[in-house]
């Protein structure tokens, strides 16, 4: 929310279908655990609303994972906007899971990275990730390459936390607002 204040956007925080459908743009953020978040979407009916939205939609962190087909986190069936399954990072000696901190992203192919320097650093906190797939529009590498950003039609998503990713994160938010 404060990130939107910092870029001067007008917003409201809602789970009301009409308000969401009539918004210019929709941001679907999140922290937490996949099955609980998905249960909440089902309770409010938003699991059926979000995939049918026509305006630009931006999911971040758990929001991105819920836009995928399935998450290994508590065997959760998600919304399936992106036909890819979210998997836990494999246990690897010397590499901690969660992947937490600043890491660089590369291989951009999305309007959201306009004016972003190559190998921009952004802030991640997650134990599950979507592998690189046909919707990947920015990649990150930790233990193995994974999708830092996904895009399909009007749906955009980022695994990292734009709101605390310094000037790079702010640029991505501004790019989304300009779509």
């Amino acid at each position: 929310m404060y990130a939107l204040d910092r870029v001067g956007a007008t917003y409201l925080y809602t789970d009301d279908e009409h308000e969401i459908r009539t918004a210019d743009k929709v941001i679907f953020p999140g922290v937490g655990e996949a099955s609980t978040a998905m249960a909440y979407l089902k309770k409010t009916g938003l699991d059926l609303v979000i995939p049918t939205l026509k305006q630009p939609v931006f999911g971040t962190c758990i929001g991105m994972q819920l836009m995928c087909r399935y998450s290994e986190e508590n065997n959760t069936d998600c919304m399936g906007i992106f036909d890819v399954d979210v998997k836990r990072f494999p246990a690897t000696p010397g590499l901690k899971v969660p992947h937490m901190g600043w890491n660089n992203i590369f291989n951009y192919s999305t309007p959201l990275t306009t004016q972003l320097p190559d190998n921009a650093y952004v802030y991640f906190v997650h134990s599950y990730a979507a592998p690189v797939c046909e919707y990947t529009v920015a990649t990150c590498d930790y233990i193995q390459p994974f999708s830092a950003m996904l895009q399909k039609d009007n749906f955009y998503a980022a695994q990292f936390h734009c709101e605390i990713s310094g000037n790079a994160g702010q640029q991505i938010i501004e790019n989304f607002l300009k779509l």
């Binding site: 404060y2 990130a3 910092r6 802030y123 605390i164 990713s165 310094g166 000037n167």
Partner: peptide, 8 residues
């Protein structure tokens, strides 16, 4: 602080 800075 939250309104001002863009790092964790």
């Amino acid at each position: 602080v939250a309104q001002t800075i863009n790092i964790p």
